[in-house]
Structure formats: C-alpha cells, structure tokens
C-alpha cells in the first residue's frame, strides 16, 4: 500500500513489477492511467499545471486507500499522482490494485479513482492554444460517480 505525489513520470510496467515482486497470492492486477488530452470541454490546450496541498494530499490519498482496503480484499495497491506542468499525452495519475480475483481489483481501482477525483486536493490550470489560462472547473459527473459508492458494501 503506497501513495506518491511526484513531478516526474512513472513507468507502469516497473510499478506493477515492484508491487507484485515475490508475491504468489495475487491473481489479478488492474491498472488505471489518467493521461492529458489536447482538448477539454471544446477548448484546445497546450499544457496543464497541477497544484496540490502538500501534506493533505498524501493524507487524503492514504485515507481513500484505507477505505478501499476495508471494502475489498486487496493484496496490494498504489496511487501515483503527478504535479507540475504536463503536456498532452503525458501521464497524470496511476492507480494499481492487486487482489486474488479480478472483481475486487476492478472495483477497487474504480473506487479509488472516483474518490481521488472528488477528495484529493489537486487543482488543474490549463494553458490554451490562444495563450489564455484557466482553472479547470469541477465536474458534476465526478460528484455523481462518487455518490454511487455511498452506502454500498464491497463485493
């Protein structure tokens, strides 16, 4: 179980190998990678800068991870989130979940992403092709995604 906030890129293969090294109790590994797109809400962007709240970010990610472990039987998990300036095509976030069977790993990965998007203190600022900058607005769809987990036990 680990969370990391970093400026540099991550290597998905290396992260999975590190997480599963020497383990023979893991039957399923799910990875989710969030990537920067070249457009958002119809607006072109050339780069995006991610700001966060050092200290709270790590605490919040740890709390979210702990909640996932209470709901599903996870053998291992990892959250890596990048900060700083990123360009279209760059990785933003990595979530890895490992379990004995796939259902728990799939569900926990989705849960971690839904919670991370509405609770972890990160803010995106986009730089547009027109030279303009704007803060990204929170999406109602993300709130709705997290609400569907409430009052629902882990499978």
């Amino acid at each position: 179980m680990a969370v990391r906030v970093q400026g540099e890129d991550f290597d998905i293969g290396a992260e999975v190998r590190r997480l599963t090294a020497g383990r023979t109790d893991i039957g399923a590994v799910v990875t989710f990678t969030g990537v920067v797109r070249a457009e958002n809400a119809g607006e072109a962007l050339t780069s995006m800068t991610l700001e966060h709240y050092p200290g709270m970010t790590e605490h919040e990610l740890e709390r979210v991870e702990e909640e996932a472990r209470e709901r599903w039987p996870l053998q291992a998990s990892l959250i890596v989130h990048r900060v700083g300036t990123l360009k279209p095509g760059d990785n933003i976030v990595l979530v890895v979940t490992a379990s004995a069977h796939r259902q728990a790993a799939f569900a926990a990965a989705e849960f971690l992403m839904d919670y991370l998007k509405t609770r972890a203190p990160f803010w995106k600022r986009e730089q547009g092709g027109d030279g303009k900058e704007r803060w990204v607005d929170a999406r109602e769809a993300d709130e709705a995604a997290v609400e569907r987990w409430q009052g629902r036990a882990g499978e």
Partner: peptide, 23 residues
Amino acid sequence: HVQPTASIAGAREIAFFPPVTGG
C-alpha cells in the same frame, strides 16, 4: 475536509480552496 459549520477549536491549520480537480 470540513463543512462551513465545523468548529475551529484546536485547529492549527485552516485551508480554503475551490472544488478539487485532480485525477
């Protein structure tokens, strides 16, 4: 995270920010 009605008794650090947009 806290609501506006939360007590600040004993608080060392209070932060204010827009809705989060990570991930």
